[in-house]
Amino acid sequence: MWRRLAQILGLLLCLLGWGFVGCTLAMDHWRVAQLGGQGGSSVVLTAWYWSDLWRDCYEDSTALVNCVDFGVLWAVKPYIQAVRGLLMIGLCLGLIGVVLTFFGLECTHIGGDPKSNDRMLITACAFHLLGCLSDVAAYCLYTNRVVAAFLHAKADPSKLSYDIGPALYIGLVGSFLILLGCTVHCATACRLKHPKRYPLVSFTGGKGEENEVLRGKKHICAPSKRTNDSRNVSLYKMASVVTV
């Protein structure tokens, strides 16, 4: 019973993480830069520059947003193309992993015997892990470019100093949930029921007496020589008494 509940919990964690990663593709504010907002005057002007995987936008203090969409695919910066590709690969692998997980669950009764279910579940975990690695690589690549732009802005004040937006944090949380769900599935797929089996060893005694050792115990199938001698002695004594 606990294995089924753990498998359902792992599936829910993987689905939740997969949904978080998918939402980040359409989210805004991957990186954010703020200008103004300093006091000392009667009117405080603030402007925000933010970007995502599809456009660059400018927003002023009156909530007026002006965006410029990225052009054709080959005109986009290479690292943005790489982030898009890695996230899409991760989502496709995660979708395959979810489908295989349904076949590997015990409560669905689709995969067959328990061994085939465990193999299917381990295969689904492998797809989930590959997708998680692809997602984490995409987020780390984008974070690296944001940090590089921040360091360049520190060296040159004329450039914008971008910060990491909430979309990256949500994506990293989703990747952690996928990893946690894979851990739960791997723990349920590894069965620990391995009974100890002792070998059946047969050997021959001194005069053809067959002995058997089973599970650390010795069973004698034939009567021993000592018992035969004691019986012969007792019969001899009885015969001598009768003769007298």
Rank of each mutant, 00 (worst) to 15 (best):
G90E: 06
P114M: 02
A187C: 13
E210K: 02
I122E: 06
L53G: 01
S224D: 13
W50M: 08
G206V: 12
M238N: 13
R119L: 03
C107K: 04
G10Y: 01
V44Q: 13
D69H: 15
G112S: 00
L9Q: 14
W74E: 08
G90T: 07
N232V: 02
C132D: 04
S51R: 14
L45R: 10
V83M: 13
D28G: 12
L200W: 01
L200Y: 05
T101C: 11
I110Q: 03
T46V: 12
R119M: 05
I122T: 03
R4T: 09
A82F: 12
Q7M: 13
D60Q: 08
L64E: 10
Y49K: 05
D52M: 03
G112R: 04
L16V: 11
H29L: 07
S134T: 07
V72W: 06
A148N: 04
L105T: 02
A26H: 09
Y79V: 06
C57M: 08
E59D: 10
D229Y: 06
E106A: 03
K225I: 05
L177Y: 08
L200S: 01
G94I: 03
S230V: 05
R226M: 05
W50F: 15
G22P: 00
K196G: 15
K207I: 06
V244D: 07
L11G: 14
C67N: 01
I8Q: 10
G40F: 08
L95Y: 05
